[in-house]
């Protein structure tokens, strides 16, 4: 018995040590980012010291004051506007589509779901060039509005997770309400939605975050229109070969500013995220 106990203790110690090592590996790059956002610039992009010798807030201040070459505040506002707008449209589209596929029964249901499945297998980037020319043809290219359209236009295709969640709500509740004379429209707004708070929050957050982290679509749509860049593309410009020596620490500061709100949002929504994915994804 004591043998068993010591064995357990050894295993647990190994586990803890292992976890600590892993945690350090995972946290180092983040700590590094954070430290270098407070480092003074003149030492070049990558000094050999692990911890900066001098600390300063300059990088953060410069981001918002020195807007000649890199207009960080402008990019931030662009991203915020696009994120809010596309978040609203995307949430509506995703929830409606998911509800229709989960709860309503109509002839085109299966075929439509199959079509969406097949469309999802084309590389998303492939259609970007065509979208760019389409937007150009209707005179919308290089505008923030076009970006909203691009982010929310294909949103309905990501209905799986929300559908998976709706599927877990017992249908008998709907049926009872309809026996009492409720229309499907009323069922959706008054019964299904209030019961689906986690997935609504998940959808909203997911839609809000994606413009902050997208990089490809903006670069195709905005091309060289600096003023209309979003954060991700803007930050990327800061660490190109020509700029990295001078702007690396500002890049770190800019990245920290974006990462903080997203990290907080993500930690809040983690719970819904998991329940959404496991309800929607694991069932298939």
């Amino acid at each position: 018995m004591t043998n068993m106990k010591t064995k357990n203790a050894i295993v647990n110690t190994i586990c803890h040590v292992g976890l600590t090592i892993l945690a350090v590996i995972w946290l180092i790059p983040i700590a590094w980012l954070l430290m270098h956002s407070f480092r003074e610039t003149p030492t070049g992009a990558f000094p050999s010291a692990l911890i900066p010798e001098t600390w300063t807030f300059d990088n953060y201040i410069k981001l918002f004051t020195d807007t000649q070459l890199f207009n960080y505040p402008r990019w931030f506002m662009n991203t915020l506007v696009v994120a809010i707008a596309s978040c609203i449209v995307t949430t509506i589209l995703v929830l409606l589509t998911a509800y229709a596929f989960s709860r309503l029964r109509f002839k085109a249901r299966k075929p439509l779901m199959n079509v969406i499945l097949i469309l999802g297998m084309f590389p998303a980037f492939m259609s970007m060039v065509a979208i760019y020319h389409l937007l150009k043809a209707i005179g919308l290219s290089q505008s923030l509005f076009s970006l909203v359209l691009v982010y929310s236009g294909g949103a309905a295709m990501n209905y799986y997770i929300a559908k998976g969640f709706f599927d877990t709500i017992p249908r008998s509740i709907d049926e009872a309400a309809m026996l009492d004379g409720a229309t499907k429209n009323q069922v959706f707004w008054k019964i299904t939605l209030p019961m689906s708070k986690p997935i609504v929050i998940y959808t909203i957050m997911q839609a809000f975050i994606s413009p902050w982290v997208d990089f490809i679509f903006v670069s195709v749509i905005m091309k060289d229109n600096y003023q209309k860049y979003t954060i991700a593309l803007g930050l990327y410009q800061m660490i190109t070969r020509e700029n990295i020596q001078q702007y690396f620490t500002q890049f770190c500061a800019g990245a920290v500013i974006v990462a903080i709100p997203i990290t907080i949002l993500f930690i809040i929504m983690q719970k819904y995220y998991v329940s959404g994915i496991t309800a929607g994804g694991a069932k298939g």
């Binding site: 995972w26 902050w212 991700a232 974006v258 990462a259 997203i262 993500f266």
Partner: peptide
Amino acid sequence: TIAIPQFV
């Protein structure tokens, strides 16, 4: 580490 935007 998941929460930090991937591009960063």
